[in-house]
Computed example of a mutant assay.
Amino acid sequence: MPNRQDRLIQWLLGSVELQTSLFHLGQYCGSWQASTNGLARASFHVILNGDCWLHLPDAGHRHALKAGDTVFFLRDVRHVISPHADLQDALHAPRVSMAALDLAMPCSTALACGFFDFRTPLNDLFLSSFPDYVLASKERQELQEVRALFDLLLKEATAQGGAPSPLITRLVDLMFFYVIRHLCQRQEVSADLWAVLARPEFSVLFDAIVSAPARDWSVDDMANLTHMSRTRFFKRFSEVVGTSPSHFLAQVRMKLATRWIADGMSLSRAAESVGYQSDAAFSRVFKKITGTLPGAYRRASHTRERLRA
């Protein structure tokens, strides 16, 4: 049976609304460079065949990449992918168009690249505690799921036909979620909501809030649940999570509300379910946390569903 931390990780992953799009699929030969930065979007690169280098000029880092490796950029980070190990050679390499996939061609590198869009501002908020980029390899023993997903992705990418298979982005989604879950379990995250999972005393509190979001939670109630004095709880919570207990409570409540509204719950019922008797008060907090009003969020959710159908 999953423990409390695993249940909370699953809940958080289930609350992330992700839209993945494929930017280009193909291969490069000779001297080239590729990048998805500069568009203020999260992105990914999957190395389908061959090898290359990932350069991050601002950080002064570089990584050797090979077939089976995937890099996820959770934020818009300046980077360049190229066959050149030297940064200057990579930066001065030409930007050329991708050729069609032909894995039998020697000295070539095949890539699948695209973008992530997190559909609500809360998704950005919850993922803000993760590193700017994450490297995943099918060779890592602790990420066996990624190995199987990469093999499926490669099969879809090389399938004969016209347009790229829509399953490619779905498989990238799954790879992304497995990697994020791995980071949570390894506690490779900084302060914010996800950091709560690393502290047993705070994960108990989170579990209780999710189970009873309409409860009139006071700081004293939270402190008692964690067996701390009010002063010690407030100081420790703020240090670990990076925000006040009351703001954290509002974040969790609004996250629940967004899911229920998207599922068709009325705005008044959603407000009551997360502890607000006044629709106006609920709307103010919803706008403060998510950046949009509940009604606008509901209309946008319905539009997305119609487009998806």
Rank of each mutant, 00 (worst) to 15 (best):
Q5N: 03
R7C: 05
L12W: 15
V16K: 02
E17S: 14
S21N: 11
L22H: 04
L22A: 05
Q33C: 01
Q33K: 01
N37V: 09
G38S: 06
R41F: 10
R41D: 14
H45N: 12
L48P: 09
C52A: 09
W53C: 14
H55Y: 07
P57Q: 12
P57M: 09
L65A: 07
L74G: 15
D76W: 08
D76N: 09
V77I: 15
I81A: 03
P83T: 00
D89Y: 05
A90I: 10
V96D: 01
D102I: 10
D102S: 15
M105D: 05
S108E: 05
L111R: 07
L111S: 06
T120L: 04
L122K: 06
D124L: 08
D124A: 02
A136S: 15
K155A: 13
G162Q: 10
P166N: 11
P166F: 13
R170D: 08
V172K: 06
F176T: 00
V179P: 06
H182A: 11
L183S: 02
Q185N: 11
Q185H: 08
V189E: 04
L193S: 11
L193W: 14
W194N: 10
A195E: 02
E201V: 00
F202K: 07
S203G: 09
V204H: 12
D207R: 02
V210T: 10
A214G: 00
S218N: 09
A223V: 01
H227E: 11
H227D: 08
R232T: 14
F234Y: 15
S238Q: 15
H247A: 12
F248C: 01
F248V: 05
A250P: 06
M254L: 12
M254Y: 04
M265P: 01
M265A: 00
E272H: 14
Y276P: 09
D279G: 10
F282Q: 01
V285S: 13
K288G: 03
I289F: 08
T292I: 03
L293Q: 04
L293N: 05
A296Y: 07
A296M: 08
T303S: 13
R304Q: 02
R306V: 15
